[in-house]
């Protein structure tokens, strides 16, 4: 046996597979044709939790939102971020007969085709894939940026072509975004997609899309889908698009163009700092929702993408007693 290759066995079925050096258990299972429950692939949803019966794993994201102190005591681990350090025996996770709905994740080879600056420190990365990408608008990919560095980015364009667009911000202390921004056209990498379940459902309810910062990428993809279907999904579409400053609203024009010919669509930009010449909403997205979204809120179907702090505060607002928004009408992904 090669150094670094470990065997994972799932009890009580006894199904086992090998995991290469640095591979996550979830990824290795999939490559071995074994589907385990998952959704976000990133440690937010907790769907891939399992009990570690024997062996050791390294968690690539110890601060994962889905992990609690209780999980540590109970030896519950998230398979999407766990890399074996020895042979491992697991229990308490279901073996699926097929991929979860709309989550037939696959590996793609990619090359960076184009990098377009949208604002200072914000860029659109266009990648050329080895074959057409299969996903639902609103879903995301996990990019392998090299040296074991992985990051999740949502597709901003429609599926079915060999091109995928990602929108990213460079953070001064963000090793992932720093690495991504250091890659120039021609660089090859691999990625996995799709992940996430915040994709558009068939509905007759009025739709509300909420985007914060680069969370505009999946919202843009869903708006493209909505527009390409002739705006027939949902009774109406209201898009709240929040960012720090007006210049950070990098896709505002694109959004307005996409929805411009639909009288039932409305785009509401929101910034934290307006300044001279800004006549739109100022404050947090939650302020704009309270000020501009007509009651009753339990009529709407909500989709949102953005920084975890925005997602959490919108969720809190929607779940407040009296508003009565059912959590089944709220779709979001929340990864940092």
């Amino acid at each position: 046996m090669t150094m670094g290759v470990h065997v994972v066995t799932i009890e009580p079925s006894g199904r086992s597979f090998t995991v290469e050096e640095g591979e996550t258990i979830l990824g290795a299972a999939r490559r071995a044709g074994i589907w385990l429950p998952f959704e976000c692939g990133w440690g937010s949803c907790g769907m891939c939790k399992a009990t570690l019966v024997e062996g050791n794993v390294k968690c690539m994201l110890p601060e994962a939102p889905a992990l609690s102190e209780r999980d540590q005591r109970r030896r519950r681990i998230i398979l999407c971020q766990s890399v074996p350090e020895s042979d491992v025996v697991l229990k308490g996770c279901t073996l699926l007969e097929e991929p979860p709905e709309n989550l037939a994740t696959a590996d793609y080879r990619a090359v960076i085709a184009e990098v377009e600056e949208l604002a200072p420190e914000v860029a659109r990365f266009r990648l050329q894939l080895d074959r057409p990408a299969d996903y639902r608008p609103g879903q995301y990919a996990i990019l392998n940026l090299g040296d074991g560095l992985r990051r999740a980015y949502s597709m901003a364009n429609l599926p079915g072509t060999r091109e995928v667009d990602f929108i990213a911000r460079r953070y001064p202390n963000g090793s992932g975004s720093q690495k991504l921004f250091s890659l120039s056209p021609g660089t090859e990498l691999t990625l996995e997609l799709p992940y996430g379940t915040a994709y558009l459902r068939e509905t007759s309810r009025p739709l509300v899309f909420i985007a914060g910062g680069t969370g505009i990428a999946p919202i843009l993809a869903m708006t493209r889908e909505w527009a390409s279907n002739g705006g027939r999904t949902g009774k109406s579409l209201t898009i709240f698009y929040g960012a720090r400053t007006p210049e950070d609203l990098v896709c505002l024009e694109e959004l307005q163009q996409l929805t411009g010919s639909f009288p039932q669509a409305q785009v509401i930009p929101v910034v934290n700092e307006g300044g001279a010449g800004w006549s739109g909403e100022v404050g947090f997205v939650t302020d704009a929702l309270l000020g501009r979204l007509a009651e009753p809120w339990d009529e709407y179907e909500f989709y949102m993408a953005g920084p975890p702090v925005m997602v959490q505060s919108v969720l809190k607002l929607l779940e407040e007693e009296g508003r009565g928004v059912s959590i089944t009408q709220v779709h979001y992904d929340s990864f940092g």
Partner: peptide, 24 residues
């Protein structure tokens, strides 16, 4: 909702929340 273990969830202020999709 789905086959998620509720014991993985959160118990707080008399409410049990499933981690996966926040069913309470």
């Amino acid at each position: 909702h789905q086959e998620i273990s509720l014991a993985d969830g959160e118990l707080k202020d008399g409410t049990l929340t499933c981690t996966a999709h926040r069913w309470q």
